[in-house]
Simulated scan of single mutants.
Amino acid sequence: MKTANNTMTTGSAGKPRLTTSAMIASIAAEGQRTKPAPFGNALVELARERHDIVGMTADLGKYTDLHVFAKEFPDRYYQMGMAEQLLFGAASGIAAEGFTPFVTTYAVFAARRAYDFIHQTIAEEDRNVKIACALPGLTSGYGPSHQAAEDLALFRAMPNMTVIDPCDALEIEQAVPAMASHQGPVYMRLLRGQVPLVLDEYGYKFELGKAKLLRDGADVLFVSSGLLTMRALEAARQLEADKIRAAVLHVPTIKPLDTEAIVEACRKPGRLVVVAENHTVIGGLGEAVASALMRARVHPAFQHIGLPDEFLAAGALPTLHDRYGISTEAICTAVKSWR
């Protein structure tokens, strides 16, 4: 039996087994509002005002939306080839000369292949390099080689590094000039291509280091970042049908963490706190929030939605998001089981 994304086959024990039939790369639901290449377009607008802005990539301009910048400013665009170590070393040198490089690649290549070069040449030297990396968490169906499930944990642990996990196109557009205004290295997870647009409905404005309460509710508090804020908002609307009132606190800056806003929101008695993130449950937002609450001696009922501590499967994203519990339906089911 086949559906648009899935195929039912029979396993060795004769039981149905779900497999996948397509590699779906878009995180936008059918009919969802989107904006094209928000990062590339925002960087172009910024570069028109600031001549210190340059764009750099490791053969991935088209796949990180930096091709938009390259077309507008070819003399300020550096394509370094498939050599991430060289890419980040060169970015450090360019920053040392007073420029502000925005550097793109896939999150797996920055977090794994070039981690030491970022650590030693950018973070330790406190160079003004802005790193924007596509395919964060489970936004690729191509398996462990391209799924950066642990990037937040790695960059969170790096001294001098600011870490951002934006939710949608609006936030990416607003984060780009904020990154440029911040003095020092920044790592931002990047959503690319046709990126969903959701935060404009909430009058949202990105502020570096600040969490924002998008909606309130007396029964459940979602503390979320990135793609999972979008899912938390969808889940909150669906949970209303079960008379479950859910609040959503969006935490786009993972480091520095807005501990004050998180602790204040979690102090409210009688509601379940659910941290939701598109990242392994090891070392990301969930553990950061739990640690902050422990230090503040605030002890709400607490649950964590995140990716398991394992190498993830390849396949179509809708199937994978259901399998690993980060789809809207899976979140709703989990919340109802915890209450």
Rank of each mutant, 00 (worst) to 15 (best):
V54D: 02
Y324I: 03
T139Y: 06
T19P: 01
Y204W: 07
F222Y: 10
T7I: 06
N41Q: 14
R50N: 14
R189E: 13
E84V: 02
L46P: 01
M56G: 03
Y106I: 15
F222L: 05
F109M: 06
R50V: 11
C332T: 09
V274S: 08
E264T: 11
A42T: 08
R323E: 10
A47S: 13
Q147L: 12
T57D: 07
R76H: 10
V223R: 05
D52R: 12
P300M: 11
T104S: 09
M82D: 04
A29V: 07
H299V: 13
N5C: 11
V298I: 04
Y77K: 01
E207P: 05
E171K: 11
A95T: 00
R189T: 00
P308W: 06
P269S: 00
P300E: 10
Q303R: 15
Q120I: 14
Y63F: 14
L257C: 04
I262A: 00
R50L: 10
V275G: 07
E207D: 13
L317N: 04
L170W: 03
L197A: 08
S337P: 00
A330V: 09
A292I: 04
L227W: 07
G143A: 09
N128E: 05
A334R: 15
R237E: 15
T19L: 00
G270E: 12
G98Y: 03
K71A: 13
Q238V: 11
L170Y: 02
L18W: 03
I282E: 09
E260M: 07
Q120D: 15
N278V: 01
M294V: 14
S181Y: 11
A180R: 10
R215A: 09
F302D: 02
A83C: 06
D126F: 13
D242A: 14
M188N: 05
A169H: 08
Q79T: 03
Y77P: 02
S224F: 10
M1D: 07
L46A: 07
H182Y: 15
G137T: 04
F302I: 07
G226W: 09
N278I: 03
M158F: 06
A22G: 02
V186R: 02
A290T: 10
G209R: 06
F73M: 05
A13P: 02
A70P: 01
T20C: 12
M23N: 12
G217P: 10
G283H: 02
F117I: 13
F102T: 10
R295G: 10
Q79I: 02
G93V: 06
A90Y: 00
Q174P: 00
A235N: 01
A175K: 12
A4G: 11
A110S: 14
A330S: 15
Y78I: 11
M294L: 14
P252I: 06
A292M: 07
S12L: 14
M230N: 10
N5F: 15
D322T: 04
T10F: 02
A25M: 13
G93M: 09
A169T: 06
E207A: 13
D219K: 00
T328S: 08
R215M: 11
A134E: 01
H67Y: 08
T253V: 04
F206S: 11
L138N: 03
F102C: 12
P256E: 05
G286I: 07
W338C: 13
A261M: 05
Q238D: 15
T3E: 00
A314C: 13
V263Q: 04
L190G: 05
V275Q: 01
V274L: 13
L249N: 08
Q174R: 07
Y202R: 07
G14F: 05
R271A: 04
L249W: 10
T9S: 01
R48G: 12
